[in-house]
Design a protein around this nucleic acid. Structure first.
Lengths: 342, 342
DNA sequence: TTCGATGATTGGAACGATCCACACGGCCGG
DNA sequence: CCGGCCGTGTGGATCGTTCCAATCATCGAA
C-alpha cells in the first residue's frame, strides 16, 4: 500500500496485516465470542504488535457516547468541607475507571448554574453527570431531570417528597449517633451539640442523630444545644458559653471547623481535650488528622459513595430505564485522642 | 424532509433552515470573517433558534484532537500536601476552560506509571498532559518526552541539567525567604529551620531561602537547623529539642504538617504562638487557615501556576514548535497570628 | 469587451470506528 | 437431493464535522 504510516495505526491497518476485514477486528475487540478461536488469536497478535488502540473520537461519533462523566467543580470555599471533595473526586475517578469511564471536570463559576451542563450535553461531550452541590434545592437536578440527562446526585433531594432521580448520600444522623454513642460509652452524660444556625437539611439531619441518641439513653438535651455560623470564632464563643452555663463534658459538632472552635476554647482555658472534655467533629478533614491532639471525627465513606454512584450510572446508561434509586450509606467514626479519656 | 428530529440538531439541520451549505455554517462558527455580514447573521439566528452546538465527537475525529487535557490523580496521601492539590485542580479547570479545554482526570494507582498515559495517548483521547508528580526523577516526563506527547510539568525537572520539556514551578526558596524576612522584621534573630530529613530537591530548595536570608542578616544558623520526617510527632519532638538546646524564638517549617508539630510542643509548654515564639508553615493548607491560632504560611500561587501551564500548553498545541519553556513563580506569605507579636 | 483577481459560497471526500444486511460454507432433517 | 439454519466473516453505509478544490458572481483594469 502507498499509505504512509504516520500517526497511530487504525482498524484498517490491523485488518490488512491480519488478513481479515475491518469488521472482524472490531468484533475481536467488542464481541470476541463471534470469532473463531484461531482468527481471534491472529487478530490479537497484530493488535499487540502494532500497539493499536481504537480511536476514541471515531468510536464516540458512531456510538453516540463519550464514556465520559461530567463533574462540576464548585467554588472553592475556605471551610473544611471541600477537603472531603478531594477524596471524593479521587474515589470517583478510580470507580469510573473500573467501569470504563473517565471523569471530565468543568467549571461553572459566576454563571448561570446550568450553562456548563447545557453546553456539554448539547455537544454530547459527556454521557452523564454527577451532581454534588445539592445543598440548596439544587436547580441543576431539576434542570437535568427535565432535559432527560442521565445523572446521579451525591446528596438527597431534600426538597422533593418523591425522588425523581437517583441519588447516593451519607447518613448524617447515623454519624452523629455513632459519635454520641461513643461518648456515652466513655462515660459522658452531659454531651453538648454544636451545630449550624441556618436551617440546612444536612445540619438538621446531623443534629437528629445526637438528639435521638441522647433521648434513648434518657439524657437531658435542653441546655446543651447550641447553633452558630460555621466559623472557628463563633464556635469558640459558643463553646465558652456552654461550658459556663451547662458544664458539658463532651461536644458533638456538625463540622470539623466547629470542633476546632471548641478546641480553641479548651486550649485557652487549659482544659485537656479528651482527658477533661471530649470533642468530636464531622468530615474527618485534613485538620482532624493533622491537629496535634488528633480530633475524633465522623468519616464519610466517600469511596463507597463513588462506587455506588458509578454503579447506578452504569445501569442508567446501560439502557435499562430502571426506577430512580436512592442509596444511603453509613459513615464510620475515626477515633482519636480528642475523645479518649486515657 | 422525512428526517425525523429526534436527537440534537446537526450542522446539516442548521444549513437547511438557513438556506446555506453545511460548510457555510461551519465557517460561521470557526471563521466568521469569511462570511458576508448578512449571511453570518442569518446563520447565527438559526443556530440560536435550534440551540445548536457542534458535536464534539465528530469535530474531534476530523480535527484529530479532543480539546481535553489529561491530569493524573495520584494516590491520596494523608499529609497536608494534597490539600493544595484541590486548589490546583480547580485553578487548572478554570484556566483550561478559558482556553477552550476541559480537564480529564485519570488514575494510575498500582500500575506501571505510564500505562494510563499510554492508553489515553494512543486512543487520542486527550491532546496533552499536565504532569504533577515530579517529586522523584519522574519517569512520566521522560516517557512522554520520548513519545513526543505534548505536556507541561508542574515542578522543575530537578534531575536534568538542560530541561527538555516545559515546566512551571513555585520558587520555594523565595517562599522561605519571605517567611524569614518577615520574622526578622518582627525582631527575631534566632530563627530555626525545621525541614525534611530525606534529601528531596524541594526540601533543599526551601531550606536555601531560610539559610541565605539568615546569612544576609548575619544571623547564626549552625545550631538552629533540624530535619525530620514529615509527621506531626517527629516535628513536635524536634521542636522540643531545639527549644532546649538553642532557644529559638521563631520557626520556619518546610510544611504545615511540621508547623503543627511545633505548635503542639508550644501548647504543651504553655508557650503562646506568635507572642512568645513565632511559627511559619508552608503550603497554606486548610489546617493553617482553620487552626485556632491562625498559622502564618507560605502560599503557592496555584491560580497563576494553572494559568501559565495552560498558556504554555496552548502554544504547544498551537503548532508553533517553540523551545521548551520554564516558568518560576513567586509565592506569597499569608500572615496570621502565629507569627505576630501583637 | 475580456481577462484575471478577489470574495463568498458550495459539494464531495475524509476522519476511523460501528451497525446492518448479506454471502459463504457446512450441517442437519425431510 | 434440496431447503433452511447456524457459525463466520464481509463490504457498504453511516455518525457529524472540517478540509479541499472548484464554482459563481462581482469588480476593476487592460
Amino acid at each position: 500500500m502507498s499509505k504512509v504510516q504516520t500517526g497511530h495505526p487504525t482498524l484498517a491497518d490491523v485488518a490488512r496485516l491480519a488478513g481479515v476485514s475491518r469488521q472482524t477486528v472490531s468484533n475481536a475487540l467488542n464481541n470476541p465470542d463471534l470469532l473463531r478461536a484461531d482468527t481471534l488469536e491472529r487478530v490479537r497478535q497484530v493488535i499487540e504488535e502494532l500497539g493499536y488502540s481504537p480511536n476514541r473520537a471515531a468510536r464516540n461519533l458512531r456510538m453516540r457516547s463519550s464514556s465520559l462523566i461530567g463533574l462540576r467543580m464548585h467554588a472553592v470555599q475556605e471551610g473544611t468541607a471541600n477537603a472531603a471533595m478531594d477524596r471524593f473526586i479521587h474515589s470517583l475517578v478510580a470507580a469510573s475507571e473500573q467501569a470504563g469511564y473517565h471523569v471530565l471536570l468543568f467549571d461553572g463559576v459566576g454563571e448561570d448554574p446550568v450553562t456548563g451542563y447545557a453546553d456539554l450535553l448539547r455537544a454530547t461531550a459527556v454521557d452523564a453527570f454527577v451532581v454534588t452541590d445539592t445543598f440548596l434545592g439544587n436547580p441543576q437536578a431539576k434542570w437535568l431531570h427535565e432535559h432527560g440527562a442521565p445523572f446521579v446526585a451525591f446528596g438527597r433531594p431534600w426538597d422533593a417528597e418523591a425522588p425523581r432521580h437517583s441519588w447516593v448520600d451519607v447518613d448524617g444522623a447515623a454519624g452523629t449517633r455513632l459519635a454520641t454513642e461513643h461518648l456515652v460509652e466513655q462515660g459522658h452524660t452531659r454531651i453538648a451539640w454544636l451545630g449550624w444556625r441556618h436551617d440546612s437539611p444536612i445540619g438538621q439531619d446531623r443534629r437528629t442523630g445526637w438528639e435521638a441518641t441522647m433521648r434513648d439513653h434518657g439524657l437531658a438535651t435542653d441546655d446543651l444545644d447550641a447553633r452558630v455560623l460555621d466559623s472557628v470564632e463563633d464556635a469558640a464563643r459558643a463553646a465558652a458559653t456552654l461550658l459556663d452555663t451547662a458544664a458539658p463534658t463532651a461536644f458533638v459538632c456538625a463540622s470539623d471547623t466547629l470542633a476546632m472552635g471548641v478546641l480553641h476554647t479548651l486550649w485557652i482555658r487549659q482544659i485537656a481535650p479528651g482527658r477533661d472534655v471530649a470533642v468530636v467533629g464531622f468530615d474527618d478533614s485534613q485538620v482532624a488528622q493533622v491537629f496535634p491532639v488528633g480530633l475524633t471525627s465522623v468519616r464519610q465513606p466517600l469511596e463507597d459513595v463513588a462506587v455506588e454512584i458509578v454503579r447506578i450510572l452504569s445501569s442508567l446508561l446501560g439502557g435499562r430505564g430502571a426506577q430512580p434509586e436512592g442509596v444511603l450509606l453509613a459513615p464510620t467514626l475515626a477515633v482519636r485522642e480528642s475523645s479518649l479519656r486515657a
